[in-house]
Amino acid sequence: MTSSQSSKKFIGCVFGFILIFAIIGIPFFIILLKNVVTASGWQQWHSFFSSAQSIFIAILIEAFPFVLFGSLVSSIIHEWISTDQLAKWVPSNRLVAVFSSGLLGLLAPVCDCGTIPVARSLLRKGVPKAAVIAFTLAAPIVNPITLIATYFAFGMDWKLTLVRGLCAYLMACIIGCAAGGLKKSQVTDPSYSRAELAATSEPGTTGGHVHISLAGRFSRITDHILSELFGIIGFLICSAAVAAVYQVYHAQHSSFGQLHTGVAAVLSMMGLAILFSLCSQADAFVARSFAASYPPGAVLAFLVIGQMTDLRNLFLLPKTFGRKLAGKMIGLCLVLCFCLGLIY
C-alpha cells in the first residue's frame, strides 16, 4: 500500500464518519428546532436533554474502564493461554464445570460490561458453552462487591442479599445447562475443540512453529484489545443512549408512592431493570428506592434480571453466543425471573 493510497483511505474514512454522524445528528436537530419555536416547551426540553446528556456521558465513562479491562483480560487469554491449558482447568464433568464457573464471579468482581469480552475469548478457546453462559449470567451478581452493596442498600439485610446471590447463581446454572446443553457432542469434545482450533488463528498453539517475540505479542495484544473494544463500544453507546433517555423520561413521568401488586408489578420492575441497564454494583440502591411502591418479589426480580438481560446484554449476548442461543438464554432468563418474582 503506498502512502498516497492510504492517506486517501484515511480521508475517505473521515468523510464516512462525518456522513454517518450527520445522519444520526439531523433528527436530533429537527426535534430541537421544533421545540425552539414553542418557547414554553424549550425549558422542559432543555432540562430533559441536559439531564439525559449527563447520564449518557456518566454511563459511558463508568462502563469504559470495565470494558477496557475486560478486553485486556480477554486478549491475554487469547494470546497466552492455550486451549489445552484451559481444557485442563475446566472440570471434565460438565455439571461440575457449569456450577463452578458460575462461582468465578467471586474471584473476579466484574460488571456485565467486563464479563462479555472474557466470555468471548473463553468461547473461542473451546470452554463448554454451558459453563460460559453460567459465568456470564452469574458473575455480575455473584461477586463480593455487588453483594456487599445489596447488603448496605437494603439496611443490612442478609436475607435479601443471600436470596439475590443464590437465585442468580442457580438461575445462571440452570440456564447454562438448559441453553448450552450438557450433551457430549456439543462441547469440550476433543474433536470439537480441535475443529474449532483449526479454524482459529491461535498464536503459539496452532502452528507451534510460529515463534513470536514479546514485542510482537504485545503488538498483537494491543491489536486485539482495539478490535475487542470497538466491537463492543457501539453497542455500549446505543444502550447508554437508550438507558439515559429512558431514565429521564421515567423520572419525569412516573409516579411515586402508587402501590403496585401482582403480575403487573413484577413485569414492570423487570422492564425497568432492562431499560435502566444499571451497573451491578449500583442497582441495589435504585432497587431500594422502589421498595416503597413495589412488593419484595418484584424488587428481587429487578435485582436479578437487570444483570442478566439488560439493554447492554440484549445487544451483546447475540454477538457473543449467536442469535439462536442468545434468544434461548434471554427467553429462559425472563421466564425464570418472572416466576421467581411471583413466588418470592
Partner: peptide, 9 residues
C-alpha cells in the same frame, strides 16, 4: 454509588 445513572434522591 457508581455513576449518576443510579442517583437516588
Amino acid at each position: 454509588f457508581c455513576c449518576i445513572a443510579d442517583a437516588t434522591p
